[in-house]
């Protein structure tokens, strides 16, 4: 343990409004499941010393289902996601990514809101949320606003999130009609592994063509990103004759992978394209 305990503060606001007031007064930063923060604290590398335990705020909890979307509390743990039938029915990629997050003890504690707000480029649910076209509800003492998730990450650990704001809920629209879901994470091993890269693809299919397609990428850019260039190539194309080579080429413009402790830029670039090719094979197969 390299953190300096005597300098630390952890308080528990009694309500959401108190939490927001304290955030606004710079009394502390949000602390949810702690599975990211405690690792940094253990390593003695946590810069902030004052935290607010938001883990029991009811407004940030629970999963609500409407006909159009699923409304997930930011405090939903991966285990809670996995226990909900509607997630399995409508969002198979979220199931896969939640199952691929750490191992059971992490899934029991880590939250969706924390996964988003920690803003790691290698986090696993963000590429899926991007591909599902999720929206975030952000609340501050100044009010509530909703931002499309694809606009939320703006650079390495840079987010459209003010110091006095909390991510309260995540809304994910249910894909309609025939849809194809692909998610794959490539980690250092089969469990308890941070992604070297990941790719989520969701496509709606109509009349033998790609009607609406989104791709989310993990660990190949400073933040989770959508693969807009590749998407543009594929939008509206016939399943029987997808422009795979052009899409793979376009994907290069969506990535800026680096060499780091987990992998190489080259591997990331090649294998991300391999995953897209595999996803597109799955996609064309649904056309038959």
């Amino acid at each position: 343990m390299r953190g300096f305990l005597p300098a630390m503060e952890l308080q528990r606001p009694a309500s959401l409004s108190e939490a927001l007031q304290m955030l606004a007064a710079h009394t502390g930063r949000p602390f949810a499941g702690g599975t990211d923060l405690m690792v940094v604290y253990n390593a003695g590398k946590l810069r902030e010393t004052r935290f607010l335990d938001i883990a029991r705020l009811p407004e940030l909890q629970g999963i609500r289902e409407t006909p159009e979307y699923l409304d997930l509390g930011a405090l939903c743990t991966f285990t809670e996601l996995l226990a909900h039938p509607a997630i399995h029915r409508h969002f198979p990629n979220l199931v896969k990514s939640a199952k691929a997050t750490g191992a059971l003890a992490i899934q029991n504690r880590g939250t969706l809101g924390g996964n988003i707000a920690n803003a790691s480029p290698a986090a696993d649910t963000p590429p899926c949320l991007l591909a599902y076209g999720a929206e975030l509800e952000l609340v501050s003492p100044r009010g509530t606003r909703v931002v499309p998730y694809e606009l939320f990450h703006q650079g390495y650990k840079v987010m459209d999130l003010a110091a006095d704001e909390l991510v309260t809920r995540i809304r994910v629209p249910k894909p309609s009609g025939t849809s194809v879901h692909y998610f794959r994470k490539v980690g250092t091993r089969q469990a308890q592994a941070i992604a070297k890269l990941s790719l989520a693809l969701v496509a709606q299919v109509a009349d033998g063509c790609v009607a609406n397609l989104r791709i989310g990428l993990g660990a190949v850019a400073p933040a989770p990103v959508r693969a807009c260039h590749a998407e543009a190539v594929l939008q509206g194309q016939p399943l029987a004759n997808l422009p795979v080579a052009v899409a793979l080429e376009a994907l290069l413009a969506d990535m800026s992978p680096i060499d780091d402790i987990r992998s190489t830029a080259h591997y990331r670039s090649i294998v991300t394209r391999n995953l897209l090719a595999q996803a597109l094979r799955t996609l064309s197969a649904t056309g038959n």
Binding site: A43, A103, T188, R189, Q190, A191, Q192, I194, I261, R262
Partner: peptide
Amino acid sequence: NTQLTNYAIPTLAD
């Protein structure tokens, strides 16, 4: 890579 998160020993799943 002096942490277990970046020095990968086999888990049961491997």
